[in-house]
Amino acid sequence: MNEGRMQKLFEAVRGERAVQPAEDFAGRVMSAIHRESRRAPAVTVFDQLTRLFPRLAWAAALVIGLGLATELYFSLTGSTNLATDVAEVAEQWRFAAN
């Protein structure tokens, strides 16, 4: 099969008559749309999360920011910091368990 013969195949297919839509095709599409609209949409957890996405992302960023700011504040004022507190609680829990 040389290039010319392959091109002849493509040319012939290009000239093929396409399938024609039925006269009431638009009506059928609209019926399908109306059927779909009547059905209650299934809402998944992911759909809900997607809908809440920007707000959830801002809320999460705010919580993280507040945590970091608090930690920074306590570190700068010389009071006890979160890491030390967590270590102390862990120590106490370990000794209590023993």
């Binding site: 297919v13 093929e16 396409a18 399938v19 024609q20 839509p21 039925a22 095709f25 638009a26 009506g27 599409v29 609209m30 749309i33 609209s37």
Partner: peptide, 30 residues
Amino acid sequence: PDDFAEIVRRHQSRLFAILSRYERDAHKVE
């Protein structure tokens, strides 16, 4: 929403022509 039927009528022939390239069965093209 019913104006979408006009959109369908305007574009159906071109769409059938495109999809006919991928499928030979007329029912499947529809």
